[in-house]
């Protein structure tokens, strides 16, 4: 049975080979620069750990991230899927971080949501709020992803009277794969792999209260 290759370069370089929920191999590199140097090495590493296993699906984290590195991961995923004749899908990296935090954490709810925040440079951050996992294990995003100044984010949270639980985990390709598998079960895994820059003209105004589907 074929395996899923997961790639994310929204922070460092992280690659994983997963089959049926089991992690066959993973390769994680923290450096937030040097994605072009590392991504193929990481891919080759995880493949070498499982000779004879074919990849029939590739999933990539689309960001948001301000780094040129994000594009390297997406380009690598695109080309790998072409060469391997595998299906190509994309997920939002913040959602994968949320999944890591929400697994086994029943304290999160819409009144006590999870806040995922990552560096967007230019003294801004990317954020998204989650109220928990749905029945298929897909994080329910109730706001974002959007780009915002930290002070404005604080204000917004005060305005809506929310003290969220802030995520502390970092993105991993294993999380990307788990999210993809959950979305597959939920029939909402997207083939869109465009990079999320989230600044104009594709900026999405974060509007608390509007349900943004997962």
């Amino acid at each position: 049975m074929g395996a899923m290759l997961a790639i994310d370069t929204s922070a460092g370089t992280t690659v994983a080979l997963v089959r049926n929920g089991e992690v066959i191999a993973e390769s994680n590199h923290d450096n937030t620069m040097g994605h072009a140097e590392t991504v193929a090495v990481a891919i080759a590493e995880v493949l070498a750990a499982a000779p004879g296993v074919g990849v029939n699906s590739v999933v990539v984290g689309r960001g948001p991230a301000p780094f040129t590195g994000l594009r390297v991961g997406i380009a690598a995923a695109m080309m790998f899927s072409q060469g391997a004749k595998a299906k190509l899908s994309g997920v939002i990296s913040l959602d994968a971080i949320a999944l890591l935090e929400l697994e086994g954490n029943s304290a999160i709810s819409s009144t006590n949501p999870l806040l995922v925040v990552t560096d967007a440079r230019r003294k801004e951050v990317y954020y998204a709020l989650y109220s928990g996992l749905n029945s298929h294990g897909v994080p329910i995003r109730i706001d974002g992803p959007a780009v915002i100044k930290p002070a404005a984010l604080e204000e917004m949270l005060i305005d809506i009277n929310i003290t969220p639980v802030t995520a502390t985990k970092s993105i991993t390709a294993v999380a990307i794969a788990k999210l993809a598998e959950a979305q597959l079960r939920d029939a909402c895994l997207s083939t869109d792999v465009t990079a999320l820059y989230l600044r104009q003209p594709d900026a999405v105004e974060g509007q608390f209260g509007k349900k943004v589907s997962g």
Binding site: T68, R122, Y197, R199
Partner: peptide, 11 residues
Amino acid sequence: SADELDDLDID
């Protein structure tokens, strides 16, 4: 735009 300056990823 300034966004494109961002794309250069300068440290």
